[in-house]
Design a protein around this nucleic acid. Sequence first.
DNA 1: AATGAATGAGAATTCATTCAT
DNA 2: GATGAATGAATTCTCATTCAT
Lengths: 217, 217, 217, 217
Amino acid sequence: MQVNNVEELFEKTLQESELTKKQQAVLSVSLNLFAEQGFDRTSTSEIAKQAGVSEGTVFKQFKTKDGILKALLDPMIEQVVPMAASEFLTEINTSQISDFEGFLTYAIKDRMVFALANRKQLKVFVQEIIRKPEITQGIADKLQRLIAGPMGDLLHQFQVNGQLVDWPVMRIARYIVGTLASYVVPQILMGIDANLDVEQASRDAAHFLVRGLAPEK
Amino acid sequence: MQVNNVEELFEKTLQESELTKKQQAVLSVSLNLFAEQGFDRTSTSEIAKQAGVSEGTVFKQFKTKDGILKALLDPMIEQVVPMAASEFLTEINTSQISDFEGFLTYAIKDRMVFALANRKQLKVFVQEIIRKPEITQGIADKLQRLIAGPMGDLLHQFQVNGQLVDWPVMRIARYIVGTLASYVVPQILMGIDANLDVEQASRDAAHFLVRGLAPEK
Amino acid sequence: MQVNNVEELFEKTLQESELTKKQQAVLSVSLNLFAEQGFDRTSTSEIAKQAGVSEGTVFKQFKTKDGILKALLDPMIEQVVPMAASEFLTEINTSQISDFEGFLTYAIKDRMVFALANRKQLKVFVQEIIRKPEITQGIADKLQRLIAGPMGDLLHQFQVNGQLVDWPVMRIARYIVGTLASYVVPQILMGIDANLDVEQASRDAAHFLVRGLAPEK
Amino acid sequence: MQVNNVEELFEKTLQESELTKKQQAVLSVSLNLFAEQGFDRTSTSEIAKQAGVSEGTVFKQFKTKDGILKALLDPMIEQVVPMAASEFLTEINTSQISDFEGFLTYAIKDRMVFALANRKQLKVFVQEIIRKPEITQGIADKLQRLIAGPMGDLLHQFQVNGQLVDWPVMRIARYIVGTLASYVVPQILMGIDANLDVEQASRDAAHFLVRGLAPEK
DNA sequence: AATGAATGAGAATTCATTCAT
DNA sequence: GATGAATGAATTCTCATTCAT
């Protein structure tokens, strides 16, 4: 997992798609504009102008303005919760991490990298979440199932191990996510400047969590 | 501090204002619509219709659509950071709280109540923050000054007391805010249903933080 | 006839009217605003604000916005053409002016003073003329009747006298009016600064006209 | 120089532009409506309806209502003063007109034709001048420079020749313009009917001016 | 007579979307 | 696939006017 070159990750994914150069430009420009000024405040004509294509071209591939949004968010959404659940967790198991702090450090670093690599998409995504309550509910359900399911099982293992306090999994998950967010959210909202040392930050966060979540005497 | 009746707090404030009934209705309806569907997706004609007034009336008092937003957020914004700094902190000192966990419990409960009482405004406020980067920067600066200033001094006292780990204040503040947010953000995003037990939640959060932030042996 | 204090002439007329102070203020402010920015670009609320009255008051006396315009122009319109025809011309006869240049000097000076005293009203009036073709036609008819009637008779006398070239009265009137306008129009359009020496200007204009309109050898 | 077919001159210019038929219709209709009822009293929806296009189309090309006005006036404005100064005056010199009356006849006829060919635009232009004092000042400055500069030199030649009275150039220019205006302004204000015999009128005007401006004995 | 909140009919302008070329 | 002129519904905002107090 490389922390570098995270910036161009989206561009590479673009180039591997079947889209023409112009359609790629539309997506790329749209992502930047949506992140900067919001979906509603970005007009399709502005997208066309900045992408150097005609107004018609914007709609040729993506049909509607919402279609562009979907094309931007769908690939990422599938990675947020599911990847956390499947690839990510199995990778955990295979690497035989039985150490809670090690697990936390790894998991937090992984999600930090993901968040930074998809900073703009996440910003757009958060906008959408706020705007559409039905989405919010859907996300909440998925999260709850994740915490109750695979993630819960994992945490439960650490509780049985005597490495994790005996609180409800929901409460534990809350603190983990909150701590992760305290590093990631400012990065997403602020923009470029942010030179977050991911290695250090994930170790710090894990350290704090391990202490706060240690079994009570 | 009353946790109940939080819902009608805004309505009461409205009635004490100098606005006519109709203008109050405009503000009240606007807050709900902005929170539900976002500022950009709410048309002034929809506001007028739901408030039972003419379109002209909407603009008579607030001049522009942004004027309505300002009328909704300004009173609250002045309470977010400053109140945390002045009234709130002095109240802490006068009540002679030398106990870190006590301090945390009180502070967290206070901000939770504030957040729940201003749930809708905060939702609208968050939308604005995301939309206008210049605002974000302003908020960030204020926060940093708060943490470096009064809040930092307070935390430093606890460090000297031997009740708080010797990490940079910024890091400590990060975890406190992150933990608080982990309770409050879902409430803000979800809507009414969520019946958070503020007393219990603030005790839980403070307890977790005290363990995570205890001085290292 | 005083050339001085021409500025306050309208204000004095106002004070002699039966209008209340507030209604006078409405008229006075309206005249200035109409002259500066045009009738259409002046809103009744702006009038109210500048006049220091409520929006309702503006309509109490004058019923409609057009009513204000009418109240401003009517008194002046009755002086433009008719006065030229009646009071003015009879005064000429009684003073026994048989000298063409004397007549011209007097007549031009009289109309110059009138124009300068009613500068703002004339500006508003010209705007109206341009806007409403039906008015234009009415004015044109009146003028033509004046020139064919009393003014024509007068000019004809000078032709019989051998002091005026034997051209159609219409043509002669054209040059007289054009020459007068060449002094007055810039004053009306420009504003205050222009300090026209009415005495000198009327003598100059008359002198030029007498030479141009002298009988051909 | 053809006096006939002046009516369709604007239409021809339109067709030679790069505008689509619909955009041409917008301009053409706008010119007529602005001239008839004034800029402020003409709504963009009325323009759209009469031009047989959608409201969106009106703004696609010209961005704003003022943009339409600009598109109508700009081409003409560049001809009013400058052309009088450059093309026009040089043409005078090359044709070796040393006769003052000949010069006047030519110049007046030229400007009459120009005014009649741009009757509607001039009407709209005059509306603008009255409305925007800052424009008025600009025009006045240009005119003054023209009269002080090339036009003044020319007039001075005639004074040296002994063909022109020894008055200040400003005064002479005033009478020339006033006399020209006395023919042209009624045409502009009245509308179509006016069948002005340009040949005859320019000869008449020049003749009158030559007499009024002859050197004093 | 005066007030000023309220009205509602438009006004200019924007914008996602379509479609003939 | 790409273009860009054209669309028309929707949006924010203005303004003359009314009316209860």
